Simulated scan of single mutants.
Amino acid sequence: MSAQDDLARENRTSRWPTLTGRTWGSMNQSTHRVGLPAEVLDDMAGVVGAEVTVLGRLPGGVNAGALRVQLGGKAHAVLKAVPRAHPNQLDETLRARRVVEHMRGRGYPTPAWLGVGATATHVWHLMDFVDGAPAAVLTPSIVEQLMEIIELQAGQASEPYDHWLYAWRVATGQESALGGLSGYSSVVSGLVERLRLVCAGLPPPREAPDMVHADLNPSNVLVRDGAVVALVDIENAGSGTRATDLTTLMWHSFQDPLDGVRGQLWTRILVVVGWEGATMLAATQILLQLEWPIRLGRHDLIAGVVKRGHRLLDELSALR
């Protein structure tokens, strides 16, 4: 796996009675070890009505990270808590819970959310623990399973959080946060200019009919014995086109065993959104993949992103 994929796994990013039988000393010690304020576990315990014990960190997660916890000395669960960054953060997390409930009712394999809440400093959510490991690599079998899972998202938009319209704004240069990319280097500038030319004049999308996961990278795909058992980190889910998630898979499938599967991905994307829509989504993926390593100062990753970006555009151009 490349250094870029390793950091993507680290960075993924990327929007609930009274406690009985709790031991204050053990809780305070465990929260200290993981760097999480005790108030967060206090709030969670009050919502779920059970003793909470932190067992340790899980791979992935952001800020405070994903923590494996035990409820009432029995069931295991996963806690994610992030520092408050803006006033609407709890509302966004509640939106994600509604998406989870809606999609689970349609057979979508994402863990049930057991609770959502907020303290003065953090917003948190608690979900079922799933026995599976993040996909180390995307094998052809895993990609094919994911393509079928993504079809469950068709026509299932349930929240007005439009990733489709956002992609259009990114691809057509209307997102100010991405406006400084061209000044990074001549090679980045060349790729950004190519993207601007290919996206010039693209009309805004007319509808957002599908549910969108919005972060379907390998670290958010849990696998057991070669089978996909869960899709996690669904906090940014919303509406749009399911081709958004297919395009993310496309970005993470640049290795030899997947060359054949890439053709299947492109075919499905073009069926769902056509060539102009595929161009918009590819451009958005490339620009966002450029933005975060530049923002984090991971200059060693830029050349790889630029190479992938040009290859993605070359493949798309050949399909026109």
Rank of each mutant, 00 (worst) to 15 (best):
residue 179 G to P: 08
residue 32 H to M: 10
residue 240 G to K: 15
residue 240 G to Q: 15
residue 157 A to E: 02
residue 94 L to F: 04
residue 246 L to S: 08
residue 283 A to L: 09
residue 258 L to K: 06
residue 191 L to N: 03
residue 282 A to P: 10
residue 7 L to T: 04
residue 31 T to Q: 12
residue 8 A to D: 14
residue 92 E to M: 09
residue 26 S to R: 09
residue 45 A to C: 06
residue 156 Q to N: 06
residue 257 P to N: 13
residue 306 V to K: 04
residue 198 V to R: 15
residue 100 V to W: 13
residue 102 H to I: 11
residue 132 G to T: 05
residue 279 T to E: 02
residue 22 R to A: 02
residue 157 A to Q: 06
residue 288 L to Q: 13
residue 114 L to Y: 05
residue 63 N to V: 01
residue 158 S to W: 15
residue 261 V to K: 02
residue 130 V to M: 01
residue 153 Q to M: 14
residue 91 D to Q: 13
residue 132 G to M: 01
residue 221 V to K: 10
residue 312 L to K: 14
residue 293 P to I: 05
residue 155 G to T: 07
residue 62 V to H: 08
residue 201 G to R: 14
residue 128 D to L: 14
residue 267 T to E: 08
residue 95 R to N: 10
residue 253 S to I: 14
residue 262 R to A: 02
residue 291 E to P: 07
residue 6 D to F: 11
residue 291 E to F: 05
residue 293 P to E: 07
residue 23 T to Q: 12
residue 249 L to P: 03
residue 277 G to V: 15
residue 9 R to N: 02
residue 24 W to I: 08
residue 79 L to Y: 00
residue 308 R to P: 00
residue 64 A to D: 11
residue 27 M to I: 15
residue 36 L to R: 03
residue 24 W to Q: 11
residue 2 S to M: 08
residue 164 W to L: 14
residue 196 R to W: 11
residue 285 Q to M: 08
residue 47 V to K: 01
residue 137 V to W: 03
residue 241 T to D: 08
residue 191 L to W: 09
residue 228 V to Q: 06
residue 91 D to E: 13
residue 50 A to G: 00
residue 85 A to F: 09
residue 188 V to Y: 01
residue 232 V to N: 02
residue 119 T to W: 07
residue 45 A to K: 07
residue 249 L to M: 10
residue 16 W to K: 02
residue 5 D to L: 14
residue 261 V to I: 08
residue 191 L to Y: 10
residue 67 L to P: 00
residue 121 T to E: 11
residue 200 A to H: 13
residue 96 A to I: 01
residue 130 V to N: 03
residue 94 L to Q: 14
residue 76 H to I: 01
residue 309 G to S: 05
residue 152 L to I: 13
residue 62 V to P: 02
residue 275 W to H: 01
residue 227 A to T: 15
residue 87 P to I: 14
residue 249 L to T: 09
residue 151 E to F: 00
residue 58 L to Q: 10
residue 239 S to W: 15
residue 126 L to K: 06
residue 231 L to D: 05
residue 143 V to T: 04
residue 221 V to E: 12
residue 207 E to W: 15
residue 39 E to W: 07
residue 234 I to M: 09
residue 74 K to A: 00
residue 273 V to K: 12
residue 196 R to N: 03
residue 196 R to T: 09
residue 265 L to T: 11
residue 284 T to K: 14
residue 167 A to L: 14
residue 159 E to L: 07
residue 227 A to G: 03
residue 2 S to L: 04
residue 257 P to W: 15
residue 301 L to R: 09
residue 197 L to Q: 07
residue 73 G to Y: 10
residue 139 T to Q: 01
residue 291 E to V: 10
residue 194 R to Q: 03
residue 133 A to D: 10
residue 169 R to L: 12
residue 134 P to T: 05
residue 88 N to A: 01
residue 177 A to T: 12
residue 57 R to K: 00
residue 147 M to Q: 05
residue 256 D to R: 15
residue 32 H to N: 06
residue 235 E to V: 11
residue 8 A to H: 13
residue 6 D to W: 12
residue 254 F to N: 04
residue 240 G to L: 15
residue 143 V to P: 00
residue 137 V to M: 04
residue 16 W to G: 00
residue 89 Q to P: 07
residue 264 Q to N: 01
residue 228 V to T: 03
residue 274 G to W: 04
residue 295 R to D: 00
residue 109 P to M: 07
residue 267 T to K: 15
residue 193 E to K: 09
residue 238 G to R: 14
residue 27 M to W: 10
residue 15 R to N: 00
